[in-house]
Write a protein that binds this DNA or RNA. Structure first.
Lengths: 181, 181
DNA sequence: TCTTTTGTATAACATATGTTATTATTCTAC
DNA sequence: GTAGAATAATAACATATGTTATACAAAAGA
């Protein structure tokens, strides 16, 4: 009937994700993606109408990747805020391009930062809510402050303006958490 | 002897700065810049060896612009940290592309975030140091925490994830300052 | 084996970009 | 006024990009 498929959609998106991690979203071009996937540009446009659609799916995939990262992150303290902070800051440092892509671009296709944090499984908010419930005063206020703080540290690590070790980070997060509480 | 100059270096860099503010550094291309300055691309390359050199000078100019912004910012409290925070967060909201360019790009040509803050006149550090001196415990620690917090809020405003009013921001900054102190 | 169908590659088109060559313009000293 | 020189515009070259048209290849039923 017809020729067999040798380039799958998965191969394309895998290559795109690798390219994204290595060089950032603006370097995920049709030709570079084709080269990464060892094919011509045709298979890309068989699966996606345009490169924008590829970026769309990359955003999706990156959000899931962050969720997995957070889910598998080794919790080191009993304070969810501290754990979240450690994971988030480490993610920013280890996956700069991914972080920049989903947490620092204006075009996140509608998702707010909190949408990404909570994800489909909503793990972040689950942990944090239970934690905030035990908190003394205004739980929302505590979350806002901690979140601003955590996001700030992560963004600084992106530009090389943050160079604390893991344990220093933990202490910093603990400190600020207790300050805010 | 020779033809008179009609396109000055200042006209070029002014146009480039306007373009930077409106569309971001990646849109400051030779042709768009020429159009903005109402000339051909030739005058650009008379003053600058390459477009990279233009970007270099834009970074310089943007740092100065931030300094001026901060110098002229109406101080609303007696707490330098709060004033700095208000100015920085407002700057991020009002000049997103400039903020992104100097505080969020990896290529700041060597300047650290603190270099920019302090600038040539060193106004920020002057105010903050005197303030920290009055502070109770570790002045550096207080600065680090406040700065992370301030930077976090500014970065969130960039992506539309921060929507507090000026007075709410002031209260937030006051609160966190007293928490950290 | 031939034809049809579908996947893939190659090549092309249109546009955008940095940069440079060529041409035209305009000033001034002579 | 003319020649020389600096300035600017136009056009070109080389490359990069999204996207599409065309050509080639392979699989499977007739």
């Amino acid at each position: 009937m017809a020729r067999k498929e040798t380039i799958t959609k998965d191969m394309i998106i895998q290559a795109a994700f690798a390219l994204l991690q290595e060089e950032g979203i603006e370097q995920v071009t049709a030709r570079k993606l084709a080269a990464k996937a060892n094919c011509s540009t045709q298979p890309i446009f068989r699966f996606y109408k345009s490169m924008d659609e590829v970026a769309e799916e990359l955003a999706e995939k990156t959000c899931e990747f962050f969720q997995d990262y957070y889910d598998h992150f080794q919790r080191q303290t009993v304070t969810p805020f501290v754990n979240l902070g450690q994971a988030y800051i480490k993610f920013a440092g280890e996956h700069k391009e991914l972080f920049r892509f989903i947490f620092l671009s204006p075009e996140r296709s509608g998702r707010s930062m909190y949408d990404i944090l909570n994800g489909s499984k909503g793990n972040v908010s689950k942990e944090i809510q239970s934690a905030a419930a035990q908190g003394s005063r205004n739980a929302g206020d505590l979350f806002t402050k901690m979140w601003i703080f955590i996001h700030g540290a992560a963004c600084m690590s992106l530009t090389g303006d943050y160079d604390l070790s893991d344990s220093e980070t933990m202490q910093l997060l603990r400190d600020s958490y207790h300050s805010f509480k």
